[in-house]
Computed example of a mutant assay.
Amino acid sequence: MLKSLLFIPDISGFTKFVQTTEVEHSQHVIAELLEILIASNTQKLQLAEVEGDALFFYKEQDIPSQEKLLAQVETMYTAFYGHLKLLEKNRICPCNACTMAPQLELKIVAHCGEIQSLQVQGNKKPFGESVIETHRLLKNNIDSDNYILISDELASELKMSLGYESRLFSFRESAENYDDKEIKFIYSEVDKELLKLLPYESPTYVELDKKPNLSYTIQIDASANEVLEIITNYRYRGDWVKGVDRFEYNEGEITRLGSEHVCVINGKHFNFTTVTKDVDPGKMIYGELTESIPPIDKFYQFYTLESLTENSCTVTCETYWVTRSLIKKLIIALVIKKHFKKNMKNSLDNLKAFTEK
């Protein structure tokens, strides 16, 4: 029987990350990273199972070349750390999960051997001694949480020299004993500074050289972090913003700069993008931009939060709009501004009631 490739990317620091951070956001971060790793599967590996913080891939009776395998490893590391950099640069949430996410690391274990298969609820699951060995290799004495480990058996199939070196990889030999059986392997730490991270869309920073067209401030008896979570988590938006048929957004994503959501009102879709602007030290801010509210060309709305005590804060909502036509300005002044002002006050009053409840 031909040997099969067994391949496990495992997110390092997951247990500590989940236990010491906000559960909902930590789950979102891990889910996003697992999705990123799955999407970076260029070698058409079969996903056998999602194992909490890890992915178990295999390629039945087929082992890629050394070049293809190492290219797959580099692709996954590049995608993983590129996404962490995106989370770091574009985050608006101050919670521990979002703050600590850039500290996560990635290790990958690759092995090979003969495997058998089970059918479980219509899904094919590989099993056998090689599968067990692959998982055991995750438990080793390597003094790093950021490495690629290749078993000697797989290195032999790849005809890979034990001292292989390249720009990104510099392999060393080691071994571990599992149930009185020694398994030799080579491993290389991965320097993320050497990765050519893919560019990502820069967040929109808004500079406004005028006073807001409308402003309203309210005090809420809840922490600023809690209120910011309710404002930025679109799952709660319908609880305090009324008159919207539904909100469409990516439920698996933590809202960050560049995030998008859609308000559907009477069948019309209004597209919003998360933006930001400078704010005084000690304050937090969340902003949105839409270009789909006629007759306004650009409509900005910002929520600025300032802590008063551990369990109270002020929330100031400011709106700015840009119009390039005198007729549009007249329509806004005579008809729309009053409507905006009423909606702003109602929304913040509803936010206060919902949060304090």
Rank of each mutant, 00 (worst) to 15 (best):
Y200D: 07
P281L: 05
K341Q: 08
R167D: 13
K196G: 11
P94M: 00
G128T: 08
F80R: 00
Y236K: 10
Y216P: 05
T15Y: 13
G82E: 01
E201Y: 00
A71T: 03
T15I: 07
L84I: 09
T134W: 04
C112R: 07
V275K: 04
L162E: 04
F57G: 00
F302D: 01
I36K: 15
L33A: 01
L5W: 03
L214H: 04
G13A: 00
N146T: 08
V23D: 10
T20D: 02
T290D: 02
L118Y: 11
E253C: 11
L305Q: 07
I132G: 08
Y147F: 15
T355E: 09
L334Q: 14
N225C: 09
S312A: 08
D349R: 00
Q119W: 13
Q61V: 06
W321L: 10
L2W: 12
V131F: 10
N346G: 07
D180F: 15
E251H: 15
D209V: 07
D62N: 14
E35F: 14
I336K: 08
L118P: 04
H269C: 10
E67A: 15
F171T: 00
T290I: 03
R237V: 04
A97T: 05
S151R: 05
Q43Y: 11
F171E: 03
I186Q: 03
H269I: 03
I285M: 12
T42Q: 15
K210D: 00
E60A: 13
G52H: 12
L194Q: 15
Y164T: 06
L154P: 01
V227E: 02
I265G: 13
E193L: 15
Q43M: 08
W240R: 06
Y205A: 10
C98L: 04
K277E: 05
E229D: 12
I38R: 14
C112T: 01
G13W: 02
A101W: 02
Q19N: 15
K85C: 05
N350Y: 09
A39T: 08
A101N: 05
E24V: 11
R91Y: 07
E24N: 15
A97H: 07
V29A: 03
N213C: 11
